[in-house]
Amino acid sequence: MEIETVLAPVDGSEAAMRACEYAVAVAERYGADLHVLHVLGEGTTRAIEDGDLTDDDIVAESDRLMDEVAAMAGDVPTSHSTAYGFSATRLTQHPGSVILDAADAVGADFVVLPREPVTGDPEAVIEKAAEYVLAYASQPVLSV
């Protein structure tokens, strides 16, 4: 199997960061790049829309997550992006569709994400997307 880009969606949850460790290992094994997608949860999206969070707040959180990822990635080339996991105006926008859209946009050959919900944390949006991504992804998916 040839893998050039591994997609690791993160939301700040412990489970997502653990899954990111697996994504780093896959990228290392195949000499691939790692693209980290910061998926914003429903609460965060509402706070932005209500003006309770600013773009600077989101950038700071995204930078914090990327610093964590950079520390675990070592020499693996990484890039990142941020996406709203939910939309009040687009009902078809949910974490699963956002992850699949990002996988296509960055040309990901492999996706690593946490399993279906186990934590009950409302901000653990990626865990809620696992089943959807597993069912509809065109690339191999590792759900850990």
Results as ranks from 00 to 15, higher is better:
T44I: 14
T45A: 15
T45F: 13
R46G: 14
R46F: 12
A47Q: 14
A47P: 11
I48T: 13
I48Y: 15
I48S: 08
G51F: 11
D52V: 01
L53R: 06
T54W: 03
T54H: 03
D55H: 11
D55I: 00
D56W: 00
D56C: 01
D57I: 02
D57G: 02
I58C: 00
I58W: 13
V59G: 05
A60F: 01
E61L: 09
E61N: 05
E61Q: 07
S62W: 13
D63T: 14
D63L: 14
L65F: 15
M66V: 02
M66S: 09
M66P: 09
D67R: 10
E68T: 03
E68V: 00
V69P: 02
A70L: 06
A70F: 10
A71G: 15
A71L: 14
A71Y: 03
A71K: 13
A71C: 11
A73V: 09
A73S: 14
A73W: 05
G74Y: 15
D75P: 05
V76W: 15
V76Y: 15
V76L: 10
S79D: 11
S79A: 11
S79N: 08
H80L: 02
H80I: 02
H80E: 11
S81E: 04
S81Q: 02
S81D: 09
T82Q: 13
T82S: 07
Y84F: 14
G85F: 04
F86Q: 03
F86N: 04
F86E: 00
F86D: 00
S87T: 06
S87M: 06
R90G: 01
R90Q: 10
L91S: 10
L91F: 00
T92Q: 11
Q93C: 05
Q93Y: 01
H94W: 04
H94A: 06
H94K: 11
H94I: 04
H94Y: 09
P95H: 08
P95W: 11
G96T: 12
G96R: 07
G96L: 10
V98A: 12
V98H: 01
V98K: 04
I99K: 05
I99D: 01
I99L: 03
D101T: 10
A103T: 03
A105T: 08
A105W: 00
V106D: 15
G107I: 14
A108C: 06
A108M: 08
A108Q: 02
A108E: 09
D109Y: 04
D109I: 00
F110S: 03
F110T: 06
F110Y: 15
V111W: 06
V111T: 11
V111Y: 05
V111K: 04
V111G: 01
V112E: 02
V112C: 06
L113A: 05
L113N: 11
L113Y: 08
P114Q: 04
P114I: 03
R115G: 15
P117N: 07
P117V: 13
P117Y: 12
P117Q: 09
